[in-house]
Design a protein around this nucleic acid. Structure first.
Length: 822
RNA sequence: GCGAGAGUGGCGGAAUUGGUAGACGCGCGGGGCUUAGGACCCCGUGGUUCCUUUGAACCGUGGGGGUUCGAGUCCCCCCUCUCGCACCA
């Protein structure tokens, strides 16, 4: 008898062994190719969940594979450890965010270690540690120096539940907070921003370099940046003669302007109605609009609404006078906050015109006929031919755009312009558990940067949360009272902290040298390891984290610290793990905890199953029965070594059966090496595993049908263990040593295969008659087309179908198929 | 509405360049071992029909057309689902 497969003992043993032997340390070796394999670091909110297991297993298999391919691998791990959940936990349970966070780091770390991930643990980092956030603050200062960090009044997204402002990217499509699902409301506040818009063009253009990224992520980023080309045009306010600038993408429709719109927040609105009978009405209107949530205001279904402002403007192109309204659908933050309205060719303007009985003038004629304004049911927004447009009549609208722009520029009425939907990144948060913004306000000197050598601005970790979960920082004089770095006089610190997305926008640089104390990272180390060769993470970060990281990398490039400007060469977006088709969540009660499965079935089983479930990028539904199957397979591998392999080495019987039987086994072995290698290269782990399963089944058959050839069996079993090692490293390592082999299987060079051996000796020839499969014939591999034809024609079942028929054509696919056309 | 992706057995999913549809696994059925159950091993498993058997025929990759000797794969039209963006002028 042989020992049972005791996954707990085996896994405990090898975790310890690998740690003692420093098996996964990343070392710089300029003579060797490198791979930086990174999986998005977790937010430590408790033990690991299945999404973590799926993500980190993927990364680990890739890292282990590359290591065995002989390249230097950097595979690090850390924690995104500042953030709101820590404060929410503090509110509900009274634990300090700092303690809560550090406890959770220990919980998730324990799970990550149990899963056998091959991290270089010496590089572990945590964004809430002063040694780390010191450099987050340093980057803020660099941004500030370059005018990329600025403070401004702006309409912000306020989450009433989180009690803080949010970045645009953190507001979901339904207008709710991405963290707590509360409806976000607008607030006009003085806040810190990063000038991402300065980089809009580069963020867009450089996507060309990202051919290792999924197309859908690039599309999402492209849409988010939202570049549009058009023109800015100055209209003249008739009462005062001052110019009001608008932005339009349709300069070709300038002759169709019949009214003019201002965003309710536009500063001109107040001035126009001040002291008039409309003042109260307009004020009430604006109050109503601004009070509605972002979602209400931006929903397509929201009815067009507006108020006449009692003013008129002149259209520079035709000198016409049109009325000025304020309207709910005009956004202050896009373009200039003022819009020319062309109801015939813009759906929103059309609806507004119908509601307020304003003129509709057709100036673009559709290719297929005339358009009558009174009969229109919707705006005509497609290209056409310009009409009722003076000298431009008869011009195609696309061409007209250019010609009108030429005229605008020639006359000084306007100019070509580009606009982006992308807004500057709002980075200040009225929260406690984050990196303090390193700024001081002095009555004399104004806004002053904290000098670099005074970093970090330490976050006091002994403060309880204030009333209602608010940040204690503004209430703590020992924190905010300071002296001005410039004049030495009394000054007040900024009490806002940074958005946690700032912390995570540069962490991958820190891993190259997390102990570095003179800089955020060592330039030479970064030159070796960066950029990240393979980044892996959830699709939910397609915009937020990935866009911010790209921005940071470009800034770091411009600071002269690196000579590349994209952080992630290849990106794999992992699908979600669901249960019964639904996202796992505590409220639904469908959470599957990895820890339980590791205890019961082992980390190897869990790793293997989660990869076997399906392609990485697909979302996958968890099955308890399925995971049992993976465990059963590992049991078969265990028995294969103990029942088939070990006894044979003692017995040494003469091999049974013809040479072809043994040659077929070798062929399967080599074919499996080929297939598994190809599949891992393409991240097709599910099929790679199924090939290993076939090999193991094949070995068991081979060894049970008669005495195997010792060398053939040796080759097959050892190959199976080596191929299995990246997926199930513990059992592979254990069986490797049980098989009496030296060293760690996880360190062996990746297997190569023999092309000739990988080809089977015999192939099944498919015989079709008129495209329908009628017979299968086993033939030697590599026979000629003529022989194939002959064998096909004499096949028994084929002959029946050919009886009395005339053969018109025979198609031969070499080595595969013969199709007889009758 | 715009953009991206996907529809294959009871289930998860396989199928270079068009060339055996359903690999591998789960589940299910049958058998072995066992006092019994579990575990394990062996066999079977898309549907329908026919046959005593060996077996055979037809249907079958969301629906409908098409190209081709041959279509899950290519082309056209349609349906459904998922995800992202949605008053950006």
């Amino acid at each position: 008898m042989f020992p049972e497969y005791d996954h707990q003992a085996i896994e405990t043993k090898w975790i310890k062994r690998w740690a003692e032997e420093g098996a996964f340390a990343a070392e710089i070796d300029p003579g060797r190719d490198k791979r930086y394999v990174l999986v998005m670091f977790p937010y430590p909110s408790g033990p690991a969940h299945m999404g973590h297991v799926a993500n980190y297993t993927l990364g680990d298999v890739v890292a282990r594979y590359y290591r065995r391919k002989g390249v230097g691998v950097l595979h690090p791990m850390g924690y995104d450890s500042f953030g709101l959940p820590a404060e929410n936990a503090a509110i509900s349970s009274g634990v300090h965010p700092s303690a809560w966070t550090r406890d959770n780091i220990e919980l998730i770390k324990a799970d990550l270690k149990r899963l056998g991930f091959s991290y270089d643990w010496s590089r572990e980092l945590s964004t809430c540690e002063p040694a780390y956030y010191r450099w987050t603050q340093w980057f803020f200062l660099k941004m500030f120096e370059r005018g990329l960090a600025y403070k401004a009044n702006a309409a912000t997204n306020w989450c009433p539940s989180c009690g803080t402002v949010l970045a645009n990217e953190q507001v979901l499509a339904d207008g709710t907070c991405e963290r707590c699902s509360t409806l976000v409301v607008p607030r006009w506040l003085n806040q810190w921003f990063f000038k991402v818009t300065d980089y809009a063009e580069r963020l867009l253009d450089d996507m060309e370099k990202l051919d290792g990224w999924p197309e859908r992520v690039l599309t999402m980023q492209r849409n988010w940046i939202g570049k549009s080309r058009g023109a800015e045009v100055d209209f003249t306010l008739e009462a005062t003669g001052e110019k009001i600038r608008i932005y339009t993408t349709r300069p070709d429709t300038l002759y169709g302007v019949t009214f003019f719109l201002l965003a309710p927040e536009h500063p001109l609105v107040d001035r126009l109605v001040e002291g008039t009978e409309r003042e109260a009405e307009v004020a009430a209107f604006r109050k109503r609009v601004m009070a509605s949530s972002t979602i209400e205001r931006t929903a397509l279904e929201t009815e067009k609404d507006g108020v006449y402002l009692g003013a008129t403007v002149t259209n520079p192109l035709n000198g016409e006078s049109v009325p000025v309204y304020t309207a709910n659908f005009v956004l202050i933050e896009y373009g200039t906050g003022a819009v020319m309205a062309v109801p015939a060719h813009d759906q929103r303007d059309f609806e507004f015109a119908r509601k307020y009985d304003l003129a509709i003038r057709v100036v673009i004629e559709p290719p297929d006929g005339e358009l009558v304004a009174d009969d229109m049911t919707e705006a005509f927004e497609e290209p056409g031919t310009m009409i009722a447009s003076g000298a431009f009549d008869g011009t195609a609208s696309e061409e007209g755009k250019q010609k009108v722009c030429d005229l605008l520029e020639a006359r000084g009425w306007g100019a070509r312009a580009v606009n982006y939907r992308l807004r500057d990144w709002l980075v200040s948060r009225q929260r406690y558990w984050g990196a303090p913004i390193p700024i001081v306000y002095c009555e004399k000197c104004g806004t002053v940067a904290v000098p670099e050598e005074e970093l970090p601005v330490l976050l006091p970790e002994d403060l309880p949360l204030a009333e209602g979960g608010k940040s204690p920082l503004p209430l703590t004089p020992s924190f905010y009272q300071t002296s001005c770095p410039s004049c030495g006089g009394p000054a007040k610190r900024e009490t806002d902290t940074m958005d946690t997305f700032v912390d995570s926008s540069w962490y991958y640089f820190r891993y190259v040298d997390p102990a570095e104390s003179d800089a955020p990272f060592d330039k030479e180390d970064a030159a070796y390891w960066m950029p990240v060769d393979q980044y892996i993470g959830g699709i939910e970060h397609a915009i937020l984290h990935l866009l911010y990281s790209r921005f940071f990398t470009k800034v770091i490039h411009d600071l002269g610290l690196i000579d590349f400007d994209e952080p992630f060469t290849n990106l794999l977006c992992q699908g979600m793990i669901t249960r019964d088709g639904a996202k796992m969540s505590k409220s639904k009660g469908n959470v599957v905890t990895p820890g339980d499965h590791i205890d019961r079935l082992g980390a190897d089983t869990l790793r293997l199953y989660i990869l076997f479930m399906g392609p990485p990028e697909l979302s996958k539904d968890w099955s308890d029965a399925g995971v049992e199957g993976a465990h059963r397979f590992l049991g078969r591998v265990w028995r294969m070594v103990h029942e088939r392999y070990l006894p044979l080495r003692q017995a040494g019987d003469e091999p049974d059966g013809p040479a072809s039987r043994h040659r077929a086994m070798r062929s399967l072995t080599h074919r499996t090496i080929m297939n598994v290698t190809n599949d891992i290269d393409q991240f097709a782990f599910n099929t790679a595993i199924s090939f290993i399963m076939e090999l193991v089944n094949g070995i068991n058959h081979y060894a049970s049908e008669g005495a195997p050839d010792a060398a053939v069996l040796d080759e097959a079993v050892l190959a199976a263990l080596q191929l299995l090692a990246p997926f199930a490293p513990f059992i592979s390592e254990e069986l490797w040593s049980i098989a009496g082999k030296e060293g760690r299987v996880n360190d062996l060079p990746w297997l190569s295969f023999d092309d000739e051996l990988a080809k089977p000796e015999e192939v099944t020839l498919i015989v079709q008659v008129n495209g329908k499969v009628r017979d299968r014939v086993t033939v030697p591999a590599g026979i000629s087309d003529d022989e194939m034809k002959a064998r096909a024609l004499e096949a028994e079942n084929t002959a029946r179908h050919l009886e009395g028929k005339e053969i018109r054509k025979v198609i031969v696919v070499p080595g595969k198929l013969v199709n007889i056309v009758i």
